[in-house]
Design a protein around this nucleic acid. Structure first.
Lengths: 225, 225
DNA sequence: TGTATAAAGATAGTAAAACTATCTTACTTT
DNA sequence: AAAGTAAGATAGTTTTACTATCTTTATACA
């Protein structure tokens, strides 16, 4: 066992054995982030992951049922981490405008915070979230998975942001729409800037995260004014 | 050959043979919409589709390279259809506020319009778009596909909506963000209402499309005011 | 120090998915 | 009637997505 850092409680149903608890599990997590990033969800296989780890398919299957639950586990970890960042960053802050700005900063820019966990490359995981996260819930079995609480991390995070929106303007009628939309927008607009530039005003420059953050702050404040 | 209705020009690279031109192709399109709707993209196979059509796998492969391009073809058809609806519905309308309202109505509610093409169930196709469309561009090969113009139908539709937003308020700084966000929001919020209710204020009732339409009009007008 | 036990490695095998190839039949078009 | 095209029938390949079992290695605890 090794590895600096916090552990988050991820839904037990998502893995057969907690990868945070063993060296092998931590390596599995770190290499799967790299592999998802390199080849994408569709081309990702446990065979390729095992090869990358100098291990075997059977060993990987001892931790996760399939690549879908592995991805879901990673995405949950990511949302738990963003939730944690938001919590510590808005602690003791009274001004609700500043609070909302911090929230938006952490949604768009989480990966610029200093890393917390040695075996997780938060920056690369953020890339995986942008590219693949919508696949975790756009599935035919969505209702079963939702019943098992597989989306709880995301739902709770949206609920937190929604509560801050309500605090900002208690008369605003659509706090949950705005909250979930902030998350979807953050991922989509970065993706569009990189791959489908006609769909966004954000230019694919180094500072695109900052540009997007500014746009999102501006639009949110206008909506809530 | 048979079948009432308009034909749209769909990118030639998406199919090996235009399914709109033959009886077999039209049946392929209509049955694939049903099958995508029934079992979702991941479980969908050409073998199952062929069985449903009382045909063979090899015959299906004569029209489409794989299920990904078939889905993309369907989604493109859908956006061409929505584009067409918007064009005829805003024709001769001067008032830009009314224009934007019609646009939003057609984005959220397209499938309530009377059907145009005998072998396409627009309502069911709308369901497929809500459930699966994000998978067409969240792929590792996105840059190649974008270069081949596979997303042109969507991009042009977003451009049209963006131009109406500019007309509404020429000073608004993020017309493309708002336009693409309207489409993403329309799909997501309906999906959330049905499967992840904590993520939206829209209740999963019969009139949810109308509720969402109202919310989207309200928010857009506030942003553009 | 020896023994239990659990974690991972090695190997093998299956069913289905995702194609490719080829040959035949049926229907049109000229 | 001949030629051409579309679809059916059949078969085969590679890869994916698992499952099973047996062996080895590391750890732990008594």
């Amino acid at each position: 066992m090794s590895g600096r850092g916090i552990q988050f409680e991820i839904n037990k149903h998502l893995c057969l054995k907690d990868p945070q608890m063993t060296n092998y599990g931590q390596k599995l997590i770190s290499e799967s982030i790299v592999l998802f990033h390199e080849i994408g969800f569709e081309q990702f296989t446990f065979r390729k992951l095992a090869a990358k780890m100098d291990s075997t398919e059977a060993s990987v299957y001892r931790y996760f049922e399939n690549k879908h639950t592995l991805l879901l586990w990673l995405i949950c970890w990511y949302w738990e981490w963003v939730h944690y960042l938001i919590d510590i960053n808005i602690k003791n802050i009274e001004d609700v405008e500043r609070k909302l700005k911090i929230v938006i900063h952490n949604i768009v820019n989480a990966s610029t915070e200093s890393p917390l966990t040695s075996y997780i490359n938060e920056n690369m995981l953020h890339r995986v979230v942008i590219n693949e996260s919508s696949k975790t819930y756009h599935i035919h079995e969505v209702d079963v998975e939702e019943k098992h609480g597989h989306f709880k991390s995301y739902e709770e995070l949206v609920a937190k942001v929604s509560s801050i929106i309500v605090e900002f303007n208690p008369k605003f009628k659509y706090p949950k729409i705005l909250a979930s939309n902030l998350f979807e927008m953050a991922n989509n607009q970065i993706y569009f800037a990189e791959h489908m530039p006609d769909l966004t005003d954000i230019k694919n420059r180094k500072d695109k995260h900052i540009d997007l953050e500014n746009a999102m702050v501006e639009m949110s404040f206008k909506l809530l004014s």
